[in-house]
């Protein structure tokens, strides 16, 4: 189960529009074998943008009921930046509990994990996985997949920014000279240890350069990042 996102990667990378993102969210749900996957961006002007596997009736009902004002996931994650298990959010109000009951009636699971996304110029979006299970299963699931889910959350967001045609989309600058050095050495077959030695930096610092380059290239792992750096002409070997 280690690299469940590898097959999913291609779908996301090939996505050309919101309908393709919708397909990607369904594929991800099936790969993870959970009930729901949702990516949701409310723009500064209040426009909603996203995709996901919730029942369209629930989405409509949610909007009609103006649940944005009640939903503890929105209240607890909006303009926050760390991932949150739904259990840790505040469900103590009567309205929140009624909301959860209504959600479950519409096919949502009782467990959720939401990853807030901080984008360019303070853009904010939310990526959520949802499932019906006991607490023990969900704790294990989120601990095992947290890092991959953060990767995927930002990958959805980068695609969404691209589709929006936002001038601010994606990384603001290209790769830094040190990121280019690091990627070049990996591309010619150096191990991380060898690359760090060659650049006279610690392996930890090297990891940071590689990770930052990976994110800017919109890649899901180091191998993919090196391939992209080459195909986009950032590095020449």
């Amino acid at each position: 189960m280690a690299n469940w996102y590898d097959p999913f990667l291609q779908t996301l990378e090939d996505a050309q529009d919101l309908a393709d993102l919708q397909t990607a969210s369904e594929q991800l749900r099936d790969l993870l074998n959970i009930d729901h996957v949702v990516y949701h961006w409310v723009s500064a002007s209040g426009e909603q943008y996203g995709c996901g596997t919730y029942d369209p009736n629930w989405v409509r009902h949610y909007l009609e009921q103006d649940y944005l004002r009640v939903d503890p996931v929105i209240l607890g994650c909006y303009q926050r930046f760390h991932p949150a298990d739904w259990k840790r959010l505040d469900w103590s109000s009567k309205a929140a509990r009624a909301f959860m009951k209504d959600a479950i009636k519409h096919g949502l699971g009782n467990q959720g994990y939401s990853i807030p996304i901080r984008g360019p110029k303070g853009q904010f979006a939310l990526f959520t996985v949802n499932h019906s299970s006991d607490d023990a299963f969900w704790t294990t699931f989120t601990e095992n997949h947290r890092r991959s889910l953060i990767l995927v959350a930002y990958a959805f967001n980068q695609k969404a920014l691209e589709f929006e045609g936002s001038a601010d989309r994606g990384p603001q600058k290209g790769l830094s000279p040190r990121e280019i050095d690091a990627m070049t050495l990996l591309a010619v077959g150096y191990s991380r240890a060898q690359a760090a030695t060659a650049l006279s930096i610690s392996e930890h610092t090297l990891r940071v350069y590689i990770e930052s380059a990976r994110f800017k290239l919109g890649a899901m792992n180091t191998t993919h990042a090196v391939a992209r750096a080459m195909s986009q002409g950032f590095i020449v070997v």
Partner: peptide, 19 residues
């Protein structure tokens, strides 16, 4: 760091959800 001290990074930025 990215808005004001890019020159200290040799002209680049550090960007990642893990940093």
């Amino acid at each position: 760091v990215n808005d004001h001290f890019s020159d200290l990074l040799g002209g680049g930025s550090v960007e990642s959800p893990f940093i």
